[in-house]
Design a binder for these strands. Structure first.
Lengths: 212, 212
DNA sequence: ACCTGAACACCGTTCAAGT
DNA sequence: ACCTGAACACCGTTCAAGT
């Protein structure tokens, strides 16, 4: 008998082999030794299945954090989110497609709030920080996976080639080649660091009156 | 006779009325007084059309910037990107779907490089800054539009209601309600500011040796 | 209770044929 | 040169019928 969790797991496995555009109810049914319509016992629509997949993809992110200073924890968590979204083909697009609101999203938000609270960051802005960080991670991973698809074809190299024969300034050429050739993980961490530096400055600007 | 630019414009108009999922070659054909297959004279595939739409959506962002300090210019540009992606239904998803590489993307990148060069920001990291900012904007607008869809249904309100009856900490509840109720534009600008503060710190840490 | 077969109303894309 | 009609190989989803 088919269990709901098996459907989600099977869907994520099929995502890896077929990609998001190749993920159909018929193929998923066959992979689970069932016919497509049987899936509708567990999910009212394919969209609902995608929602469940998105939450499943974020599961590992909600694990407990090592004890560290707040800035390292935030950076660590961002890295974990990125790793989770990249761990399956089109993972970022799956999560971006649904407005994420599953249980794991809440757990991750709570983790960020605990970090910020420990750092004595104002509660009124903690949600803004959590959203901003999440949006950065989402945007970055979407583009990383899109770029990976294009690299598989030759499009990426073609764009790099077009670069060298351009009338751009030396500054622009340096900026672009350094960005294209960089290790994506390093480029990602750099953005996280800029962001966290901004958070730190916010802490210094409006120091919490912890002595009251 | 059908011109390529008319197809792109018609597709964006249809995007507003039907949404990305309702944008089909058949409907677009009819809206242009033609049958679906006629579109293949101008685009080798629907994906190629979506690429052209993405570039078209970013057109307004590439306009010249007012003379201002670098940080205001960066913030202004980010706001313009956001406005462009939000100006049509599912605009962010259209841009996220394609790995953006059209002419307007290049113009926007160049604009950022000019801003950073004027601020004497190191060329080797300018591309990283441009990408990071773009990824934040993309992630934010995707979620903004997804949230807007859910608001149209009642899902958003439902989640807010679920919030009040939760055993969360006071800190988490404050953080979440402040994030949900905030003006999205303000929340967006806050994230941009964190980010720009990080860029500013980078400038102070490794000051360019402009006097050589 | 759980699943299937057949059907409905669609898709993107191809291509011979029309004008 | 530009477009259409018809067709191909699919989709998500519904639902009566099977077991």
């Amino acid at each position: 008998m088919l269990r709901r969790a098996d459907v989600v797991d099977g869907a994520i496995a099929l995502l890896d082999s077929e990609g998001l555009d190749g993920l159909t109810t018929r193929k998923l049914g066959l992979a689970l030794n069932v016919r497509g319509p049987a899936l509708y016992r567990h999910f009212p629509s394919k969209e609902a299945l995608l929602d469940a997949m998105a939450d499943r993809l974020l599961e590992a992110v909600a694990a407990p954090l090592p004890a560290r200073p707040w800035d390292e924890q935030l950076s660590f968590l961002a890295g974990r989110m990125r790793a989770a979204l990249l761990s399956h083909r089109d993972g970022a697009r799956v999560v971006a497609g649904t407005y994420v609101t599953g249980p794991n999203t809440r757990l991750i938000e709570d983790a960020i709030f605990e970090i910020l609270q420990a750092a004595e960051f104002p509660a009124a802005r903690a949600g803004w920080v959590a959203f901003a960080l999440g949006h950065y991670v989402l945007g970055h991973t979407i583009e990383e996976q899109a770029q990976a698809q294009l690299s598989a074809a030759g499009v990426w190299q073609a764009r790099k080639d077009a670069l060298s024969g351009r009338p751009d300034s030396r500054y622009a050429r340096t900026a672009l080649t350094e960005a294209f050739d960089a290790d994506p993980a390093e480029r990602f961490d750099y953005g996280v660091r800029l962001f966290i530096d901004g958070v730190r400055r916010e802490l210094l600007d409006a120091p919490p009156r912890s002595v009251n």
